[in-house]
Computed example of a mutant assay.
Amino acid sequence: MAQQETDERVSDEFIDDTKDSAEREQAHRERGTVRPITVVGHPMLHRECRDVTAFDEALASLIDDMFASQRAAEGVGLAANQIGVDLKVFVYDCPDDDGVRHVGAVCNPVLDELPPDGRVLDDNNEGCLSVPGAYAELPRPDYAVVRGQDATGRPVTVRGTGYFARCLQHETDHLYGHLYLERLSKRERKKALTMMAENTPRYETVPNAE
């Protein structure tokens, strides 16, 4: 788990990820190259990713590819290990429950732990590009705060409500080797995997091998 031990990696100021969201997403996507999506069973999805330590052109290029891949797969969030890259970074292009579009990228994300009396669970459907064609109801807090770094290494803090909060939690989970399936009961997990087996992915995927 990424630790935030110094002030250089912690920010209490929430970023505005709604400004020029369409233009920023388009710029990333047009620079990027679409990559195939790893699916459940692939080893990289089931272990914690490495921290991002180099905030360079290679990282910027990866983020562009992630935006391009996310759009091609019609997703709202994508973690690096979902395109076979072992780094703690995710991108998102996700509306909140008010329809406001949020676009951004977070490196080395850590979720704030909400106090029990401050949690309101949202029990809605959740899907995953790495479990194509499957959905399941999954309770998650309807508010989330993620702290990390942007593509240049500067500290960022992102907050979300409703659907966007679910996205932030889902993508952070990915980077620590967890799929949403693991949060389901055995029965619901089996049902989701059956749904996946019965459907053909609408985007390119890769075999479950490195």
Rank of each mutant, 00 (worst) to 15 (best):
D96W: 12
R189C: 07
M196D: 01
P155F: 13
L62H: 03
F67M: 06
P141E: 03
A72D: 15
P36H: 13
V131T: 12
R147L: 08
D122H: 07
E25C: 02
R166Y: 05
N124L: 10
D16P: 02
L175P: 01
A79Y: 03
G133C: 11
S61I: 02
V120K: 14
E113H: 04
D51K: 10
N124Q: 15
H174N: 08
A2P: 05
P155L: 09
D86L: 11
V52E: 02
E126F: 00
S61M: 12
V52C: 08
S21H: 12
E188V: 10
E171C: 06
N108D: 05
F90E: 00
L114S: 06
E182Q: 15
A105L: 09
D7W: 07
V39F: 10
D97Y: 01
F67R: 00
V52Q: 01
A80W: 05
E113R: 09
P139K: 00
C49W: 01
V40G: 03
V91T: 12
V156M: 02
C128G: 05
D96S: 14
I83L: 05
A79S: 14
R29V: 06
E182K: 10
D20S: 12
D97E: 11
R189F: 09
D122K: 12
R29S: 13
R31I: 01
